[in-house]
Write a protein that binds this DNA or RNA. Structure first.
Length: 552
RNA sequence: GCGCCCGUAGCUCAAUGGAUAGAGCAACUGGUUUCUACCCAGUAGGUUGGGGGUUCGAAUCCCUCCGGGCGCGCCA
């Protein structure tokens, strides 16, 4: 019996009361069934009586009592009670709860997946760093979170495209080229340029491949170094993201947006929608029609297109490519763009409530030796994605970045992460997986093929078995809510709770027979439970993009 | 000045308007002749920044004040 199944049972109980005329509610909303925080309150609890009390014109506790009467005859329910202001607490018979283990083992890697977003095509754009330097710690957070979000959305059935927008157009590219060219000539980069040590490396690489560039001067020299440096830096970003297990489906070049005529087409569409006007020799988009602070310039008085013009065209281009929802994961330093981007969607004739979503991620701070690390791109002392991975590894880096909601600022203590200690819960979760794997290996060594034997779910009646089963049953709901709320951290938090439940079970319940003891049905039942738990941990870690090791 | 985000245990952080606000780390006390102790059991730690409001019920929603971060360009 799953929480979803139980919710249907409660809905049926409500409908039965209404149909028999004992209660009058028009259009009762579906019940929500949750696991209570306090285990003494049973396996599941629902607040449906309190929610519907007003519509029914009854006291919450009276309505709850009527529902209790309806529910307690169900063969799958062991006990129903009314508590507090009107909660209905439900305990399942152990066999009904334990069927979950069989369900999970049979569904295998599909357990937790659903089809509730199956009609939706979603573009998830994240990182979108300039190709003028290495990816820093902030980008690393978006890499981990964006990829995990994409995985969670896919698990909910959505068609997802991971997209990286390459800002390869504009004056910062020229600054980039001038900086490399200057260093190649043995000079310092210009004040407005780029100063990190990687510029020196890029200059050396460019010269190694193209020694003839050294003789170029002026704009030709800038362009030559710019293009060669761009190719090298983009390749570096791509390879480090590959290492980080974040694989983009589309790397979309801003230049290509212009070359393909998408910018012109976008402008035409916006004109047709009637939100474009001219003032002071410039062309504007009236984003204030849709809540933006001020209107935005598309074409400057000198005829140059703005960066914002690319943004508008890019959004329209995404919609033309068939995406129902465009998600932009932006850093807090770009939150000023939210208003104008949403307005772009509206100006293009879309619904800014549904077609565009812009979660804002707060920045990542760091402690090293207990002192905040000051990061400055100009000074070139940034901490890069590679640095973090070198320090703690891909699993710990990804996990520690996605286990927090993105809208909360995050402080990473590098010294703690470096210790590879339990301060990083990823080891706690991975260890549970490795521990179960070991038990299953030992079972195999004893010649026990539990899947070939009869599973007697009613034997899993120990309190800690019940709690573990309850946690396992929650997984599909957790994945679904993580997808709907765009909050992949829920999966990580859930895994930690699941791992705790497993360790407690393991501590109290012997799985394999000791010594020469015969194999009993309880051993078989517990092996089913172990296999189910391992499957859910593996599925959850996969949604995080973190490895599930068989040995540690 | 205006706008957005944040403020929860000593530290890092959870909690989809629900019952006694939870974990991990740090501190203290215990537990393994047995399947992986990277584990488990327990103690201690709170005016959820302050104040007001909404309601059966608020860390959560509204108002206000305080504190912190970020952003407010015909730059990209």
């Amino acid at each position: 019996m799953t929480p979803e199944g139980l919710a249907e049972l409660v809905d049926a109980a409500v409908a039965s009361l209404v149909d028999s005329g004992r209660v009058s509610i028009s259009n009762p909303q579906p019940a929500r069934v949750e696991r209570p925080r306090n285990p003494e309150h049973g396996d599941y609890t629902t607040n449906v009586a309190m929610v519907l009390a007003k519509a029914a014109g009854r006291k919450p506790r009276d309505l709850a009592a009527l529902l209790q009467e309806q529910l307690q005859d169900s063969p799958q329910i062991a006990a129903v009670s009314v508590a507090g202001p009107g909660f209905i607490n439900i305990t399942l018979v152990s066999a009904a709860a334990a069927e979950t283990a069989r369900t999970i083992v049979q569904a295998a890697e599909k357990y937790g997946h659903s089809d509730r977003l199956s009609e939706t095509s979603i573009n998830v754009e994240f990182i979108s760093a300039n190709p003028t330097g290495p990816l820093h710690l902030g980008h690393t957070r978006w890499a981990a979170v964006g990829d995990a979000l994409a995985r969670v959305l896919q698990a909910a059935g959505a068609r997802v495209t991971r997209e990286f927008y390459v800002n390869d157009r504009g004056s910062q590219m020229d600054d980039f080229g001038r900086s490399i060219a200057a260093v190649a000539a043995g000079e310092s980069p210009p004040e407005s340029g780029y100063h990190g040590g990687y510029i020196t490396d890029l200059a050396a690489q460019v010269l190694a491949e193209h020694p003839e560039y050294q003789s170029l001067t002026g704009e030709d020299r800038m362009r030559a170094f710019r293009e060669a440096g761009y190719a090298l830096q983009l390749a570096q970003q791509q390879s480090v993201l590959d290492l980080f297990r974040t694989h983009f489906d589309v790397w979309y070049s801003e230049r290509s947006l212009h070359d393909s005529g998408a910018v012109e087409r976008g402008m035409t569409q916006l004109r047709e929608q009637g939100h474009v006007y001219e003032k002071d020799g410039a062309v504007w988009l009236r984003t204030t029609d849709f809540g933006d602070d001020k209107d935005r310039v598309l074409v400057k008085a000198d005829g140059e297109l703005t960066y914002f013009a690319s943004d508008t065209a890019y959004y329209i281009n995404k919609r033309d490519r068939g995406f129902d929802i465009c998600i932009y994961l932006l850093g807090a330093d770009h939150h000023g763009y939210v208003g104008r981007l949403r307005a772009v969607a509206a100006c293009a004739g879309d619904d800014m409530q549904t077609n565009i979503e812009i979660p804002i991620g707060q920045l990542v701070n760091m402690l090293k030796d207990g002192v905040p690390v000051k990061q400055s791109k100009r000074a070139g002392n940034i901490v890069t994605l590679e640095d973090l991975v070198d320090e703690v590894g891909v699993d710990a880096a990804r996990y520690s970045l996605i286990r927090y909601p993105v809208d909360s600022p995050l402080t990473l203590d590098l010294d703690l992460l470096t210790k590879r200690s339990n301060d990083n819960p990823v080891y706690y979760v991975q260890y549970a997986h490795a521990r179960i794997s070991s038990v299953l290996r030992n079972a195999e060594g004893l010649g026990i093929d539990f899947e070939a034997q009869t599973f007697a779910p009613e034997l899993l009646s120990h309190e800690r078995e019940a709690r573990l089963l309850g946690a396992l049953a929650e997984f599909p709901g957790v994945v679904a809510s993580a997808a709907e709320l765009r909050e992949p951290h829920r999966v990580a938090r859930y895994l930690e709770e699941l791992a705790t439940n497993y360790h407690k079970f393991y501590d109290a319940c012997r799985v394999l027979p000791k010594g020469d003891d015969p194999v009993e049905p309880i051993n078989i039942a517990r092996l089913w439970l172990c296999a189910a738990t391992r499957q859910v941990i593996a599925n959850g870690l996969d949604l995080c993009g973190v490895a599930a090791p068989d040995r540690m």
